[in-house]
Amino acid sequence: MGQISIGLRRAVCVAVLALVVLPITAVLTAPGAAAETRKRSQAQAAAASARRMLTQLKVAGALSIRGYSRKRFQPRWEHHKGKCNTREAALARDARKVRKNAACRPVKGTWYSPYDGKVLKSERHVDVDHVVPLAYAWRSGAKRWSQAKRRAFANDLTRPELVTVSHSANIAKGGQGPQSWRPQRRAYWCRYATSWITVKRHYRLFVTRDERVALLNMLRTC
């Protein structure tokens, strides 16, 4: 009987300990694991959608740059809301703790540049980049658009065409496509490729063969 009682007490202690430890372990590990799983699933779903959209894009050779001028798209940033133009609206959207002056210009804030991971605390070091560059869009079919459609493209805050980045990253990118330039941060390649494809799909711009291969390679990082 004594041996049975000791064994029973041990079994009860182990069971009680398990009831205490397991919930604590779940609390400590589940939120992080769940968030990571959710993030991975979202990235994979976005990549799958982007691949489908990419198959719907026409593949063709790049058009001539002849006739291109930034002014054909954007003589200036368009008026957006109140006193704000599109650039100012994008800067306010992407900033933390932004403060604007009476003319809507951000005079204080913190911006994160997803291309290179830089944290910027001055509006002077920040650019609003066109994910699909204007010159690249021109060669992808936009040269055949109306002036009004080109202006709408250059000021589009609805699609993922405008992103706040560091001035240095924007200069390095220039008018290049993904076959020639990619964000310095490999962790952003998935988002960059899906944004690029989303914009091109919406505006029915075509892709070159090299561009398509580069986009598919970037989507493999999702």
Score class of each variant (00 low, 15 high):
A34R: 09
V199F: 09
M218P: 00
K173P: 11
K121Y: 11
L19P: 00
K71C: 00
R76A: 10
V20N: 10
S122M: 14
E161H: 09
E78N: 02
I171A: 15
A60F: 08
K200W: 03
G67K: 01
T25E: 08
L120T: 11
Y203R: 04
L157E: 00
R96P: 05
P160F: 06
K173T: 12
R99D: 08
K108T: 07
S180M: 14
L22R: 05
A169T: 12
A50Y: 13
R150H: 01
Q44C: 00
V199Q: 06
L22W: 06
H130S: 08
K39V: 06
R51F: 10
K200P: 03
V20E: 07
R72K: 09
I171T: 15
A60N: 13
I171P: 08
A142Q: 02
A148Q: 07
A89C: 05
E123V: 15
I4C: 00
V131A: 07
I65A: 15
E36S: 05
A142T: 04
G7T: 06
L219A: 09
K97R: 11
A154D: 05
G177R: 13
R150W: 00
N85E: 03
R201S: 15
R209A: 13
W189A: 01
Q74V: 00
D210P: 12
A35S: 13
T25M: 08
P31E: 14
E88I: 06
K121H: 13
E88L: 04
T55F: 10
T25D: 03
A45D: 13
